[in-house]
Nucleic acid binder design. Structure first.
Length: 228
DNA sequence: GCGACAG
DNA sequence: ATCTTGTCGC
């Protein structure tokens, strides 16, 4: 199963998407809004996924919009193939946003992926929207020094190509992994994440989206409509 | 060949 | 990610 023809086809799709990914700044105008989407799971009779998203004013970081949806998951979690599990709900949620953000931050990797096609890149290319990936753990690539002081940045390389950064956003935590997804450069993706990150380990859009997903989950578990 | 492996 | 309360430490 792990080396099936089917999975090879998915990798072929990833290579095609990677070719279409543009790691350059291609914003339609200066950034005014930034979005964040995070997913949570519900383990009921059939596994469901909760996609929660927020859109913030880039300058004030105030919430402009919150949206969410719940749908079935149809693909298992397989490292390097996360996008096939999480992109469908993510893209549906993006369509639901009335204020499509100028830049979208997603929980996972952008080009910091073995085929340069992580979840954030996958979603970016399929929607044509600028995306940045922020992950808790590195998936591939090498770096020279472990960030030790708050604010430290360490580039990550894969086969000689720079694919992202480790960024120590807060003291006494592990660094977060930042990589561009689509329509944004390496440098700008890091700059945007830095600007959105303060007081907490994760950038505000992702932190708020994560909290939102948890609120919804609590609400659903509390209601009697939820049976497991 | 072996180990590592986002959420 | 998820199952889960309090608790140790910066």
């Amino acid at each position: 199963m792990k080396n099936s023809y089917y999975l090879d086809e998915l990798r072929k799709i990833q290579k095609e998407i990677a070719k279409k990914a543009l790691i350059e700044n291609k914003f339609e105008h200066s950034i005014e809004t930034v979005g964040g989407i995070d997913l949570g799971y519900l383990r009921n009779n059939f596994e469901s996924i909760i996609a929660a998203g927020v859109v913030l004013d880039y300058k004030t970081m105030e919430i402009i919009e919150k949206e969410f949806l719940i749908q079935k998951v149809n693909f298992p979690y397989i490292p390097t193939l996360l996008a096939f599990r999480e992109s469908p709900s993510t893209i549906n949620l993006i369509k639901k946003l009335k204020h499509g953000p100028d830049i979208l931050i997603l929980n996972g990797h952008g080009i910091a992926h073995p085929l340069y096609c992580g979840y954030a890149t996958h979603v970016g290319v399929l929607t044509g929207k600028p995306t940045i990936g922020v992950a808790k753990k590195i998936l591939c690539g090498k770096y020279s020094h472990e960030p030790s002081k708050k604010g430290d940045v360490e580039p990550i390389f894969l086969k000689g190509r720079k694919i992202g950064f480790l960024y120590l956003s807060k003291k006494n935590t592990r660094p977060i992994v930042v990589s561009p997804g689509h329509l944004v450069s390496l440098e700008t993706s890091l700059e945007i994440i830095k600007k959105c990150t303060y007081n907490f380990k994760f950038p505000e859009p992702l932190r708020l989206a994560h909290n939102f997903a948890n609120e919804i989950k609590r609400e659903i578990k509390k209601s009697k409509l939820f049976k497991r």
